[in-house]
């Protein structure tokens, strides 16, 4: 392995072992589960909005590789306090930049699975409480 290759740098491995916001929400406004059929990853996102429409809590569940788990950790932190519209304006490039590592074509689906799930989630209001 090329020693200079940074894909498995400390931050990614740290977030893989200690994911952020990996929790089940007791009360949420929308949820969605999305799959990456090429590698078997699955991510479920639950979102709670405040009265002004900003995200006040977000949780994710599921299984994934180091890249997808690190990405969803960073993304769920990033979207807190943001409105639906603000999140929807996030680009794929911005998502990949959050990881601060080069993402190959084959891994871009891993890096983007969390973002894809959140965007689908907005269309799936559930008004459920667990």
């Amino acid at each position: 392995m090329k020693q200079t290759d940074p894909i498995y740098k400390e931050m990614i491995l740290y977030l893989y072992k200690n994911p952020l916001n990996k929790k089940q929400l007791a009360d949420f406004d929308c949820s969605h589960k999305e799959y990456n059929p090429s590698c078997g990853d699955e991510i479920e996102i639950m979102i709670k909005f405040d009265e002004s429409g900003k995200i006040i809590d977000i949780g994710h569940q599921g299984e994934g590789c180091a890249v997808s788990q690190a990405a969803v950790s960073l993304l769920t932190e990033e979207v807190k306090g943001k409105s639906k519209e603000e999140v929807m304006s996030l680009t794929e490039e911005e998502m990949i930049n959050m990881l601060e590592i080069p993402i190959s074509h084959t891994r871009s689906k891993c890096a983007l699975l969390g973002l894809k799930t959140i965007l689908f989630c907005f269309d799936r209001p559930s008004n459920k409480t667990n």
Partner: peptide, 19 residues
């Protein structure tokens, strides 16, 4: 995760399938 295994194997030109 199998995907992470395969990613590192790929860097050594070892081709396996995952998923």
């Amino acid at each position: 995760h199998p995907h992470d295994v395969a990613e590192i194997l790929n860097r050594d030109q070892v081709c396996v399938r995952t998923g």
